[in-house]
Design a protein around this nucleic acid. Structure first.
Lengths: 223, 223
DNA sequence: CAAAATATTTAGTCTAACCTAAAATATATT
DNA sequence: AATATATTTTAGGTTAGACTAAATATTTTG
């Protein structure tokens, strides 16, 4: 039976997961920034996580950390909670996608596995949250996402928005205002090589989007 | 603005509220028992709560504690959270009344006021939780409960069950099996002065109930 | 490639909340 | 009223997780 992982430890593991999704290791400083904690404190916690048995992270001084199998499981558990909660807050309590993050951030640490199963079932075992992020499966596997950044599209390509990587409520409301939400069909009509702006048609409206936005929106290209 | 009240402090305040509802003060030992904490630890926390500004409890050495106005507000806030959560877990996620307590016990400390408002509204601002306990109002007043213990009824009295005071899941399932749940109509048909047993008709069935049960069920007597 | 800049770790503090053991104070009994 | 018992408090210790300041690695750059 796995040790009790504290709320703080869960937060660390979740961030480490995110920072190492690309295969790299997570540095002390990066973690400190993401967690709003001083680097010295991060070192302390990392050492504790590495000393657990089974170890939750792999750690060599000055080399950054990666997750062990046990650590990854714990991280995916929290991420599954978070994304199911966001989905459920939006669908059953009328939250908007810019309002759910904080609430889910607190709830994710305290809900039971029973609660998790109940909301998953009530939602029909969704695979993506309101931002289009993939929800780890009940057996804690992260599905593979084969979506493409919108910034890679060129004129005459059609696509469906899969996910939007952003937490900032202002940005989220802005994107919602433009109709740039998961599930929406778009078409790229123009591309400017100088500033990498794309003109994107959403329904009957068109908008010029900069890299700031087009790198945060991931799409599935229509055949 | 009120100070941040920690989860532990919230638990203390909630218990103190319950132990002092009858107007008495709560003793260190009683609190320790209710909270599954050693008496010495309780003294420490009480002193801290009394030293807050504004003070959350009134405390004189060896005299037990009572809640201040600020402390009572904080307690009612937590109790409102708890009872709304129980109601909502039962109504929207299919929990039974014997399953909700623990889950609500953890969630009550982390939900936002926004979340509270949303579930209250979604439930139609209920006044009682699944056990029939009164839910403090949004402005943190505890409604008056004028119900009578079932043990006080005598043959030929009819009544409606208002609330059932119990957390033990086994007992709750037992009562549910007997049909003794809030809202149900009952009639007392027999009384035994020796053991204080009551025979109670629920629909077409009758059961003999001892004091252990009849003092935990509160009813409104039909005119 | 050495100096400067940056990143990381160590060492020592702090707070919250618990614990045990012992001392102090209340209450109850004779 | 004196003693016994029960309750409560004090004193000192532990763990988790944060902090600051100082020391040490590592990386970047002139």
């Amino acid at each position: 039976m796995p040790k009790t992982v504290t709320k703080s430890a869960q937060d660390y593991l979740k961030r480490i997961y995110e920072l190492t999704e690309d295969g790299s290791s997570a540095s002390t400083n990066d973690l400190a920034r993401e967690l709003n904690i001083k680097p010295a404190s991060v070192t302390g916690m990392i050492q504790k996580l590495a000393a657990e048995k089974p170890a939750l992270v792999e750690y060599q001084k000055h080399q950054g950390v990666t997750l062990t199998t046990a650590g990854k499981r714990a991280a995916l558990e929290v991420i599954r909670h978070h994304r199911l909660l966001e989905t459920w807050l939006v669908q059953t309590l009328g939250y908007t996608w810019d309002e759910v993050h904080e609430e889910a951030e607190r709830l994710e640490h305290v809900i039971s596995e029973d609660f998790e199963r109940r909301i998953a079932a009530a939602l029909g075992n969704p695979t993506r949250d309101p931002h289009g992020e993939l929800i780890p499966t009940a057996d804690l596997k992260m599905p593979v996402d084969d979506s493409t950044p919108l910034s890679a599209l060129r004129p005459n390509q059609n696509a469906t928005i899969q996910r939007v990587i952003a937490q900032d409520p202002d940005l989220l409301r802005h994107l919602d205002g433009l109709g740039l939400t998961p599930g929406i069909q778009i078409e790229v009509t123009e591309y400017s090589a100088f500033d990498n702006n794309l003109t994107v048609r959403i329904g009957k409206k068109s908008n010029v989007l900069g890299l700031n936005i087009t790198t945060k929106i991931f799409v599935e290209i229509s055949k």
